[in-house]
Every structure is written in structure tokens, then in C-alpha cells.
Design a protein around this nucleic acid. Structure first.
Lengths: 147, 147
DNA sequence: CCGTATCCGACCGGATACTG
DNA sequence: CAGTATCCGGTCGGATACGG
């Protein structure tokens, strides 16, 4: 896909009191869905975002990430790192010293993505309790149909 | 977490020519990462976004979704629908007619999320080709170390 | 029309052990 | 320090068949 500006076509802006999205033209949804899906797939897996968020604040070494992204295994750290590098979101720099030193740095592209992740984080923050409530309510009425 | 406004703390805005994210205070990353992770987990799975995007443009029936979200199986449609309903992102309305009719509608919360997804979609659109290039380049030099 | 139930393969991801 | 290799269980998700 070329560099055509704002190729996404959907109307954004001003959904303060959301009623209904204006519509965007039927199979445009599909193109958008596909695109978003591809983003989410790159960034999916439990660990990619944690790593990206860490590296957004400066170069990080392998072991630093292993400690910062808590709960991650060596294996998953390596795999996720490789994928992020492959997609051009992280650059890997090896310093041929002894002991070896490797730094992972977020690319400009990744730093832009970081912006979107912050947007997402804000949404999550706003609705976290609503979602939690919805869950307990749903589970309650599922287990306890009429009570 | 209560309703404190802008609890995310990280500095946003103005990363036109991204150099480095200012930093946000060490373990604030973790809280942000966790939050974002939770969002992504709700919305992950290949199908949730496609469904959300469809329903953002008005109520949709089960079979309509089955056709619109192409490639989805009945099973996955049902499961994803249930999870989205459980999280309060979709409301399920049953019309006790014959034959039965069920409508799924995006909640205001989901329509706000839609905004974020559009942001993500824009990012993906901007960088789609860069990522594709990065991949072929990475794969090339992996298979073809020195040539 | 709108689902649920069952089977089953693919892959994600943790634990552990070994290497340059 | 910064990985790689192997094993192995759990979950995701497709295909198919059946039910209200």
C-alpha cells in the first residue's frame, strides 16, 4: 500500500457522547478490520507490548528486559525480541565486548506506536471498573439465572 | 481503580520527530503495560475487532456477522460474542419471534474503543509497507548471511 | 435463525538444560 | 551476558454434527 495520506477513510473526531458511528461504506470496514488485525497480531502475544513500553524509554539490554518485563521467560523474551526486530520495531545492537552486551532500541516507528498504545491505555483506565463490573454481573446472572 | 482523571501519567503529545519518550517513572511503565495488556487481551483473538468494527455501525444480527466477518466459524463467533457481551462491549437483544432474531449492539464504551482502534489502524496504514520491507530484509539476511 | 457439543490438530508459552 | 535446544502441557480455533 502506497503513501496516500489518511487512507483509512473512516470518519473520526467528536464522539464525546457516542450514539453511532456515521458509517464508512460497508466493505471499508473489512479493510480497516484487516489492517487493525495486522497491527494487533504484530503486537499480540503477552509480551510484545511490555517490551515495547520498556524500550520506548531508552535502549535496554537483554537482562534488563528480563527483569523489567516481569514473568517473562528467557525463551519468550528472545522470540518476541526477534519478531519485533524483524518487523523493524526494535533495533538490535551487539557490542563485541567480553562479556557480550546487546542493546535493543525502539525505532521511530515503534515510538509512534507507543502513542497509540497510550491512547488504548487511557481507554482501559477509564473503563477498567466498568468492565470488571460488567463481568461480575454477567457471571452472576449466568450462574444465578433468577435467584 | 477510581475515576481519577488521566491516571496514566505518561507524557503524550508532540512526538512528530520521535527522539525518545521523556520517561514516566520506572514502575509506572509496569502499570501502563499491565493496563494496555489487559485491553489487548480483551480485544485479542482474531475475531473480536472485526466484530466490534461491524457492530460500531449499528446493530447486527448473528447471521449478518457470520457473513460480514469473513472466515469466522460459528463456534468462534459465538465465543467471541459472549466474551464481548461479558465485558460490556456488546449488548445482546433477543426478539422472541419465530424464527428467533438476536441483535448485537456496540455499547458507548465500545464506540470509544473504536476511536482507539482507528488510531491504531492509521498507524498500521502509515507503516504497513515499512514493516513489510523490514521483514523481507530481515528474512533475506537471515537466510543469506553474507551472500 | 441461533446457537451448543464434541473432537482434534496447531501453536503458544513455561521449565529446564546447555553454549559462545 | 546473551542466548539456543528440547520437552511438554494448555489453550485457541476449525470442522462437524446436533438442538430449540
Amino acid at each position: 500500500m502506497s503513501q496516500r495520506n489518511s487512507a483509512v477513510t473512516v470518519k473520526v473526531r467528536a464522539v464525546e457522547a457516542p450514539a453511532e458511528v456515521p458509517d464508512a461504506g460497508s466493505d471499508d470496514h473489512e479493510r480497516t478490520a484487516c489492517t487493525v488485525l495486522q497491527v494487533l497480531e504484530r503486537v499480540s502475544g503477552k509480551w510484545a507490548i511490555g517490551i515495547l513500553l520498556e524500550c520506548a524509554h531508552g535502549p535496554r539490554r537483554f537482562t534488563e528486559l528480563e527483569r523489567a518485563v516481569r514473568g517473562i521467560s528467557r525463551r519468550m523474551l528472545t522470540l518476541t525480541l526477534r519478531n519485533l526486530e524483524r518487523d523493524g520495531l526494535l533495533t538490535r545492537t551487539v557490542y563485541p565486548t567480553v562479556p557480550p552486551k546487546v542493546e535493543y532500541t525502539a525505532t521511530p516507528m515503534a515510538l509512534e506506536l507507543y502513542e497509540s498504545l497510550v491512547t488504548l491505555a487511557k481507554w482501559a483506565e477509564r473503563h477498567r471498573s466498568s468492565i470488571a463490573d460488567a463481568r461480575v454481573e454477567y457471571d452472576r446472572s449466568a450462574v444465578d439465572p433468577v435467584a
